[in-house]
Design a protein around this nucleic acid. Structure first.
Lengths: 150, 150
DNA sequence: TATTGTTATACTCTATAACTATA
DNA sequence: TATAGTTATAGAGTATAACAATA
Protein backbone atom coordinates (compact mmCIF):
# COMPACT_ATOMS: atom_id res chain seq x y z
CA UNK A 1 0.00 0.00 0.00
CA UNK A 2 1.27 3.45 -0.86
CA UNK A 3 1.08 6.38 1.53
CA UNK A 4 -1.70 8.91 1.17
CA UNK A 5 -0.50 11.46 -1.36
CA UNK A 6 -2.43 14.26 0.34
CA UNK A 7 -0.57 13.64 3.54
CA UNK A 8 2.80 13.49 1.85
CA UNK A 9 2.13 16.76 0.04
CA UNK A 10 0.98 18.47 3.24
CA UNK A 11 4.13 17.28 4.95
CA UNK A 12 6.20 18.49 2.05
CA UNK A 13 4.62 21.94 2.02
CA UNK A 14 5.20 22.19 5.76
CA UNK A 15 8.88 21.28 5.46
CA UNK A 16 9.38 23.64 2.54
CA UNK A 17 7.88 26.47 4.58
CA UNK A 18 10.05 25.64 7.54
CA UNK A 19 13.25 25.45 5.53
CA UNK A 20 12.52 28.70 3.77
CA UNK A 21 11.58 30.25 7.11
CA UNK A 22 14.95 29.29 8.51
CA UNK A 23 16.73 30.74 5.49
CA UNK A 24 14.70 33.93 5.69
CA UNK A 25 15.11 34.33 9.43
CA UNK A 26 18.85 34.05 9.03
CA UNK A 27 18.86 36.51 6.16
CA UNK A 28 16.90 39.02 8.23
CA UNK A 29 19.17 38.51 11.22
CA UNK A 30 22.26 39.01 9.08
CA UNK A 31 20.66 42.11 7.58
CA UNK A 32 19.81 43.46 11.04
CA UNK A 33 23.42 43.02 12.14
CA UNK A 34 24.37 45.20 9.18
CA UNK A 35 21.69 47.74 10.15
CA UNK A 36 19.51 46.94 7.15
CA UNK A 37 15.72 46.42 7.04
CA UNK A 38 14.69 43.27 5.13
CA UNK A 39 13.53 44.88 1.91
CA UNK A 40 16.64 47.02 1.60
CA UNK A 41 18.80 43.97 2.26
CA UNK A 42 16.93 41.99 -0.38
CA UNK A 43 17.42 44.80 -2.88
CA UNK A 44 21.11 45.03 -2.04
CA UNK A 45 21.57 41.28 -2.42
CA UNK A 46 20.07 41.46 -5.90
CA UNK A 47 22.22 44.32 -7.13
CA UNK A 48 25.02 42.31 -8.71
CA UNK A 49 25.52 45.00 -11.35
CA UNK A 50 24.17 48.49 -12.07
CA UNK A 51 20.49 48.11 -12.91
CA UNK A 52 17.48 50.35 -13.62
CA UNK A 53 15.04 50.75 -10.76
CA UNK A 54 12.37 49.08 -12.84
CA UNK A 55 14.42 45.90 -12.87
CA UNK A 56 14.61 45.94 -9.10
CA UNK A 57 10.82 46.14 -8.88
CA UNK A 58 10.61 43.01 -11.03
CA UNK A 59 13.17 41.18 -8.90
CA UNK A 60 11.43 42.08 -5.67
CA UNK A 61 8.03 41.38 -7.20
CA UNK A 62 6.62 44.60 -5.85
CA UNK A 63 5.12 47.75 -7.27
CA UNK A 64 7.55 50.27 -8.75
CA UNK A 65 6.40 52.90 -6.27
CA UNK A 66 7.91 50.89 -3.41
CA UNK A 67 11.31 50.87 -5.01
CA UNK A 68 11.60 54.61 -4.58
CA UNK A 69 11.39 54.26 -0.81
CA UNK A 70 13.67 51.25 -0.62
CA UNK A 71 16.32 52.97 -2.73
CA UNK A 72 15.88 56.15 -0.68
CA UNK A 73 16.84 54.09 2.35
CA UNK A 74 19.86 52.54 0.65
CA UNK A 75 20.97 55.95 -0.59
CA UNK A 76 20.52 57.50 2.87
CA UNK A 77 22.81 54.79 4.20
CA UNK A 78 25.35 55.57 1.48
CA UNK A 79 25.13 52.15 -0.13
CA UNK A 80 23.84 53.01 -3.60
CA UNK A 81 23.69 56.00 -5.94
CA UNK A 82 21.15 56.86 -8.60
CA UNK A 83 22.86 57.48 -11.93
CA UNK A 84 20.76 58.88 -14.79
CA UNK A 85 20.94 56.98 -18.05
CA UNK A 86 22.27 59.29 -20.80
CA UNK A 87 20.50 57.22 -23.49
CA UNK A 88 17.05 57.29 -21.93
CA UNK A 89 16.68 60.14 -19.50
CA UNK A 90 13.66 58.57 -17.78
CA UNK A 91 15.82 55.72 -16.48
CA UNK A 92 18.00 55.79 -13.38
CA UNK A 93 20.62 53.13 -12.82
CA UNK A 94 21.44 51.94 -9.35
CA UNK A 95 25.15 51.76 -8.66
CA UNK A 96 26.67 50.36 -5.47
CA UNK A 97 29.15 52.48 -3.55
CA UNK A 98 32.25 50.88 -2.09
CA UNK A 99 30.46 50.51 1.24
CA UNK A 100 27.50 49.06 -0.62
CA UNK A 101 29.71 46.42 -2.22
CA UNK A 102 31.19 45.61 1.17
CA UNK A 103 27.82 45.17 2.87
CA UNK A 104 26.51 43.18 -0.05
CA UNK A 105 29.42 40.78 0.23
CA UNK A 106 28.88 40.39 3.99
CA UNK A 107 25.19 39.80 3.47
CA UNK A 108 25.77 37.08 0.92
CA UNK A 109 28.55 35.52 2.95
CA UNK A 110 26.29 35.26 5.99
CA UNK A 111 23.41 33.76 4.03
CA UNK A 112 25.61 31.26 2.32
CA UNK A 113 27.38 30.14 5.49
CA UNK A 114 24.02 29.50 7.07
CA UNK A 115 22.77 27.59 4.03
CA UNK A 116 25.85 25.36 4.07
CA UNK A 117 25.21 24.55 7.74
CA UNK A 118 21.52 23.99 7.10
CA UNK A 119 21.89 21.72 4.09
CA UNK A 120 24.25 19.39 5.88
CA UNK A 121 23.60 16.20 3.91
CA UNK A 122 25.79 13.51 2.32
CA UNK A 123 26.71 14.60 -1.18
CA UNK A 124 24.47 12.08 -2.87
CA UNK A 125 21.42 13.30 -0.94
CA UNK A 126 22.42 16.90 -1.46
CA UNK A 127 22.46 16.49 -5.23
CA UNK A 128 19.21 14.56 -5.19
CA UNK A 129 17.49 17.22 -3.11
CA UNK A 130 18.76 19.95 -5.36
CA UNK A 131 17.48 18.22 -8.48
CA UNK A 132 14.05 17.46 -7.05
CA UNK A 133 13.51 20.91 -5.60
CA UNK A 134 14.68 22.57 -8.79
CA UNK A 135 12.19 20.57 -10.79
CA UNK A 136 9.38 21.69 -8.50
CA UNK A 137 10.50 25.32 -8.50
CA UNK A 138 10.91 25.44 -12.29
CA UNK A 139 7.57 23.79 -12.99
CA UNK A 140 5.87 26.00 -10.41
CA UNK A 141 6.38 29.26 -12.25
CA UNK A 142 3.78 28.16 -14.79
CA UNK A 143 1.07 27.53 -12.25
CA UNK A 144 -1.61 30.12 -11.72
CA UNK A 145 -1.68 31.43 -8.20
CA UNK A 146 -4.80 30.60 -6.17
CA UNK A 147 -6.45 28.59 -8.86
CA UNK A 148 -4.43 25.38 -8.94
CA UNK A 149 -4.74 25.26 -12.75
CA UNK A 150 -1.92 25.41 -15.25
CA UNK B 1 35.14 15.03 -9.98
CA UNK B 2 32.28 16.06 -7.72
CA UNK B 3 30.34 19.25 -8.19
CA UNK B 4 31.25 22.25 -6.10
CA UNK B 5 29.28 21.94 -2.86
CA UNK B 6 29.02 25.72 -2.47
CA UNK B 7 27.31 25.92 -5.82
CA UNK B 8 24.93 23.09 -5.06
CA UNK B 9 23.97 24.67 -1.74
CA UNK B 10 23.41 28.07 -3.34
CA UNK B 11 21.22 26.43 -5.95
CA UNK B 12 19.35 24.58 -3.25
CA UNK B 13 18.72 27.70 -1.17
CA UNK B 14 17.48 29.44 -4.27
CA UNK B 15 15.04 26.66 -5.14
CA UNK B 16 13.81 26.43 -1.56
CA UNK B 17 13.12 30.17 -1.55
CA UNK B 18 11.29 29.94 -4.85
CA UNK B 19 9.13 27.00 -3.82
CA UNK B 20 8.24 28.64 -0.53
CA UNK B 21 7.56 31.87 -2.37
CA UNK B 22 5.09 30.07 -4.62
CA UNK B 23 3.37 28.48 -1.63
CA UNK B 24 3.21 31.78 0.19
CA UNK B 25 1.99 33.73 -2.82
CA UNK B 26 -0.82 31.26 -3.23
CA UNK B 27 -1.66 31.40 0.46
CA UNK B 28 -1.86 35.20 0.32
CA UNK B 29 -3.98 35.10 -2.81
CA UNK B 30 -6.36 32.59 -1.24
CA UNK B 31 -6.50 34.75 1.88
CA UNK B 32 -7.21 37.85 -0.20
CA UNK B 33 -10.09 36.07 -1.91
CA UNK B 34 -11.52 35.48 1.55
CA UNK B 35 -10.95 39.12 2.48
CA UNK B 36 -8.17 38.32 4.92
CA UNK B 37 -4.81 40.08 5.32
CA UNK B 38 -1.83 37.65 5.45
CA UNK B 39 -1.17 37.74 9.19
CA UNK B 40 -4.81 37.21 10.07
CA UNK B 41 -4.98 34.34 7.62
CA UNK B 42 -1.86 32.78 9.09
CA UNK B 43 -3.32 33.07 12.57
CA UNK B 44 -6.60 31.56 11.42
CA UNK B 45 -4.82 28.67 9.73
CA UNK B 46 -3.02 27.89 12.98
CA UNK B 47 -6.12 27.90 15.18
CA UNK B 48 -6.95 24.22 15.03
CA UNK B 49 -8.31 24.35 18.57
CA UNK B 50 -9.00 27.03 21.19
CA UNK B 51 -5.65 28.45 22.26
CA UNK B 52 -4.32 31.27 24.46
CA UNK B 53 -3.14 34.37 22.64
CA UNK B 54 0.35 33.75 23.93
CA UNK B 55 0.48 30.49 22.00
CA UNK B 56 -0.45 32.30 18.82
CA UNK B 57 2.46 34.68 19.31
CA UNK B 58 4.78 31.67 19.53
CA UNK B 59 3.31 30.12 16.40
CA UNK B 60 3.57 33.30 14.42
CA UNK B 61 7.02 34.00 15.85
CA UNK B 62 6.12 37.58 16.60
CA UNK B 63 5.87 39.76 19.67
CA UNK B 64 2.79 39.28 21.84
CA UNK B 65 1.79 42.90 21.32
CA UNK B 66 1.12 42.19 17.65
CA UNK B 67 -1.31 39.44 18.43
CA UNK B 68 -3.71 41.92 19.98
CA UNK B 69 -4.08 43.72 16.67
CA UNK B 70 -4.28 40.57 14.60
CA UNK B 71 -6.98 39.11 16.85
CA UNK B 72 -8.79 42.46 16.85
CA UNK B 73 -9.02 42.07 13.09
CA UNK B 74 -10.28 38.50 13.27
CA UNK B 75 -12.81 39.49 15.92
CA UNK B 76 -13.98 42.49 13.89
CA UNK B 77 -14.62 40.07 11.01
CA UNK B 78 -16.55 37.79 13.34
CA UNK B 79 -14.17 34.86 12.93
CA UNK B 80 -12.94 34.41 16.49
CA UNK B 81 -13.99 35.27 20.02
CA UNK B 82 -11.88 35.95 23.09
CA UNK B 83 -12.93 33.69 25.96
CA UNK B 84 -11.44 34.37 29.42
CA UNK B 85 -9.86 31.37 31.12
CA UNK B 86 -11.63 30.72 34.44
CA UNK B 87 -8.51 29.01 35.84
CA UNK B 88 -6.08 31.81 35.09
CA UNK B 89 -7.83 35.09 34.62
CA UNK B 90 -4.89 36.67 32.82
CA UNK B 91 -5.33 34.28 29.91
CA UNK B 92 -7.77 34.65 27.02
CA UNK B 93 -8.55 31.70 24.78
CA UNK B 94 -9.24 32.20 21.11
CA UNK B 95 -12.28 30.30 19.88
CA UNK B 96 -13.35 30.13 16.26
CA UNK B 97 -16.90 31.07 15.36
CA UNK B 98 -18.82 29.03 12.84
CA UNK B 99 -17.83 31.49 10.13
CA UNK B 100 -14.28 31.27 11.39
CA UNK B 101 -14.29 27.50 11.01
CA UNK B 102 -15.71 27.86 7.52
CA UNK B 103 -13.08 30.33 6.36
CA UNK B 104 -10.35 28.31 7.98
CA UNK B 105 -11.43 25.23 6.04
CA UNK B 106 -11.53 27.17 2.77
CA UNK B 107 -8.11 28.62 3.45
CA UNK B 108 -6.58 25.22 4.07
CA UNK B 109 -8.36 23.69 1.11
CA UNK B 110 -6.98 26.36 -1.22
CA UNK B 111 -3.44 25.98 0.07
CA UNK B 112 -3.54 22.26 -0.19
CA UNK B 113 -4.96 22.17 -3.69
CA UNK B 114 -2.15 24.43 -4.81
CA UNK B 115 0.47 22.32 -3.05
CA UNK B 116 -0.81 19.18 -4.77
CA UNK B 117 -0.49 20.90 -8.15
CA UNK B 118 2.93 22.26 -7.29
CA UNK B 119 4.44 19.02 -6.02
CA UNK B 120 3.49 17.11 -9.13
CA UNK B 121 6.13 14.38 -9.03
CA UNK B 122 6.11 10.60 -9.48
CA UNK B 123 5.37 8.98 -6.14
CA UNK B 124 8.91 7.70 -5.63
CA UNK B 125 10.36 11.19 -6.09
CA UNK B 126 7.65 12.71 -3.96
CA UNK B 127 8.50 10.47 -1.02
CA UNK B 128 12.20 11.03 -1.49
CA UNK B 129 11.76 14.80 -1.55
CA UNK B 130 9.61 14.72 1.54
CA UNK B 131 12.16 12.69 3.46
CA UNK B 132 15.12 14.84 2.46
CA UNK B 133 13.38 18.13 3.12
CA UNK B 134 12.05 16.93 6.46
CA UNK B 135 15.55 15.95 7.53
CA UNK B 136 16.82 19.43 6.69
CA UNK B 137 13.90 21.18 8.37
CA UNK B 138 14.15 19.08 11.54
CA UNK B 139 17.89 19.50 11.85
CA UNK B 140 17.58 23.21 11.12
CA UNK B 141 15.68 24.11 14.26
CA UNK B 142 18.85 23.51 16.27
CA UNK B 143 20.96 25.93 14.28
CA UNK B 144 21.57 29.39 15.67
CA UNK B 145 20.30 32.09 13.40
CA UNK B 146 22.92 34.36 11.84
CA UNK B 147 25.87 32.59 13.34
CA UNK B 148 26.03 29.33 11.44
CA UNK B 149 26.99 27.49 14.65
CA UNK B 150 25.05 24.72 16.33
C1' DT C 1 8.65 38.89 40.96
C1' DA C 2 7.02 36.91 36.68
C1' DT C 3 3.46 36.48 33.15
C1' DT C 4 -0.79 37.68 30.05
C1' DG C 5 -2.55 40.77 27.46
C1' DT C 6 -3.10 45.78 26.24
C1' DT C 7 -1.80 50.45 24.74
C1' DA C 8 1.16 53.88 22.63
C1' DT C 9 4.59 54.73 19.43
C1' DA C 10 7.54 54.42 15.54
C1' DC C 11 9.38 52.28 11.47
C1' DT C 12 8.87 49.47 7.60
C1' DC C 13 6.44 47.23 3.74
C1' DT C 14 2.97 47.29 0.31
C1' DA C 15 -0.59 48.65 -3.20
C1' DT C 16 -3.35 52.27 -5.60
C1' DA C 17 -3.82 56.38 -7.93
C1' DA C 18 -2.34 60.71 -9.74
C1' DC C 19 1.53 63.08 -11.39
C1' DT C 20 6.26 64.43 -14.26
C1' DA C 21 9.33 63.90 -17.72
C1' DT C 22 10.60 61.63 -21.09
C1' DA C 23 10.09 58.34 -25.30
C1' DT D 1 0.23 56.54 -26.15
C1' DA D 2 3.35 54.15 -23.30
C1' DT D 3 7.09 53.92 -19.88
C1' DA D 4 10.38 55.26 -15.69
C1' DG D 5 10.25 57.10 -11.66
C1' DT D 6 8.01 60.04 -8.01
C1' DT D 7 4.59 61.56 -4.60
C1' DA D 8 0.66 61.07 -1.58
C1' DT D 9 -1.98 58.18 0.92
C1' DA D 10 -3.71 54.37 3.44
C1' DG D 11 -3.65 49.64 5.37
C1' DA D 12 -0.97 46.29 7.30
C1' DG D 13 2.97 44.04 9.90
C1' DT D 14 6.47 44.42 13.41
C1' DA D 15 9.34 45.61 17.61
C1' DT D 16 10.01 48.31 21.93
C1' DA D 17 8.57 50.09 26.13
C1' DA D 18 5.35 51.05 29.72
C1' DC D 19 1.26 49.47 31.91
C1' DA D 20 -2.81 46.79 34.39
C1' DA D 21 -4.39 42.66 36.19
C1' DT D 22 -3.27 38.42 37.89
C1' DA D 23 -0.34 34.62 39.45
Amino acid sequence: MSEDVDLVVADLADSAFRVAGLLRANFHATAAELGLPPAQAMALANLSAPAPMRELADWLKCDASNVTGIVDGLERRGLVKRRPDPEDRRVKHLVLTEEGERKRALLRKGSHAHAVTLFDLPEKDLLRLRDLLKRVADAGVGIDVASGCK
